[in-house]
Structure formats: structure tokens, C-alpha cells
Simulated scan of single mutants.
Amino acid sequence: MTNNASLDAVVQNSIAEALGLDIDEVVPDATLLGDLDAESIDLLDILFRIERASGVKVKMADLTEVIQGGISDEDFADEDDVITAVGLAQLKKVLPQIDTDALAGKLVADEVLTLFTVQNLTDMVAERADSTLAAA
């Protein structure tokens, strides 16, 4: 499945089904863990549903890998687990909606996934689909 509109629908439907939501609640800028009240186990269910519907496999580890962008744990967050300037710059690349100025010195590593939106997941699935096709 390569059509981005189709992938948008797959992601949106997968989220709605996994969380028992109406499809109109699953808007692109809604955060998965915040606005939509998903939990970690729900993310696994969502990713499974996306794979089943589209053939695009995304693992939880992939989310972390994309978010952290290959930056070492030590460079991504300080000893208190607060995201560093380097980490925030990476987050801005993959989560363009965030306000890095407002989060500077405040965002803790455990809270990063709370910023992940429906659109971020859709983009990640589309990118994964494109890279899978390119490798084939």
C-alpha cells in the first residue's frame, strides 16, 4: 500500500478501533498518549492493526529510534533525564509541532512520547512504507 491517503486512513482507523474512539476524534494534531488517552499497550495494538491493514511493520523500538535519531542517551538527555539542547533539536526534526523554547530545560525523557501525534505516526508509517518499497 503506497497511497499516502490510504495510509492516513489506515492509521486513523487503527487508532480509532484500538482506543474505541469515533473516527472524527482521531485528528492529525491529537497526541496519542495525551489527547487520545492511549497507554503503552494501546500503542502496541495500534501498530499491530496498522501492520495487519497495510503490511507496514512498525515496532515500538522504531518509535524510540526515530525520536532519538541515533543520538546517544548521554547526549539526548542529561543525568536528570531532562532532554538536552541536542535532544530538543532532534525532537524538533521528527515532531515539528513542538515548541522547543517552551520545553527547554523542562522536558523529561519519559514524557517525550506524550508529544507524539496522530500525524507523527502517519508520517512514520508513510516513511516506513516508502523505504520498504525502495528496498524491494
Rank of each mutant, 00 (worst) to 15 (best):
E111C: 01
D78L: 02
V86Q: 14
Q119N: 13
A89D: 14
D130A: 14
V82N: 11
R128S: 13
V125Y: 10
G105T: 00
D123V: 04
N120K: 02
T84G: 13
A85R: 10
V125L: 10
F116L: 11
V112W: 03
A126Q: 15
Q90I: 02
V112G: 11
E79A: 12
L91F: 05
L115K: 06
K92P: 10
Q90T: 03
D75G: 10
Q90P: 06
Q119T: 08
D75R: 14
V94F: 09
T100Y: 02
L107T: 00
E79P: 04
V86D: 14
A89V: 04
R128Y: 04
D80R: 12
A102Y: 00
D99M: 02
A126D: 12
S72R: 08
V82Q: 09
E79L: 04
K106N: 09
G87M: 01
T117C: 09
V86E: 15
T84L: 09
A129G: 03
A102I: 00
T114M: 13
L113W: 01
E74W: 11
A126F: 00
A104I: 00
V108H: 15
Q119W: 00
D75Y: 10
D130N: 12
K93C: 04
R128T: 12
L121N: 05
D78M: 02
V86M: 09
K106D: 06
P96M: 05
A77Y: 10
D75H: 13
Q97P: 04
V118S: 08
V86G: 05
V94N: 08
V125Q: 14
A89R: 11
A77S: 15
D78W: 01
L113K: 07
L121I: 04
A102F: 03
T100I: 10
D80W: 01
S72E: 13
L88A: 03
T100L: 00
R128K: 15
I98F: 02
D99V: 03
V86S: 13
I83M: 02
A77C: 10
A109Y: 10
L91G: 09
L103S: 11
M124Q: 09
L103Q: 07
L88T: 05
I98N: 07
L95H: 03
F76S: 05
V118P: 10
F116Y: 14
A109H: 10
A89T: 12
I83K: 04
D81R: 15
D73P: 14
Q119P: 03
V94G: 12
K106R: 10
D101V: 03
L113V: 09
T114G: 14
P96L: 06
V94L: 08
D130W: 01
D123R: 06
S72H: 10
V108D: 14
K106Q: 09
M124S: 07
T122C: 08
L115N: 06
V108N: 15
T117I: 06
D81H: 13
A129T: 01
T114I: 06
A104C: 07
D123T: 07
L88N: 07
F76C: 03
A89K: 13
L121E: 04
M124I: 01
F116P: 06
D78Q: 05
S72K: 11
T84V: 11
Q119E: 14
D75A: 15
A89C: 06
A85V: 12
L121R: 03
Q119M: 05
D110R: 12
D101K: 08
A126N: 15
D99A: 05
T84H: 12
A89N: 14
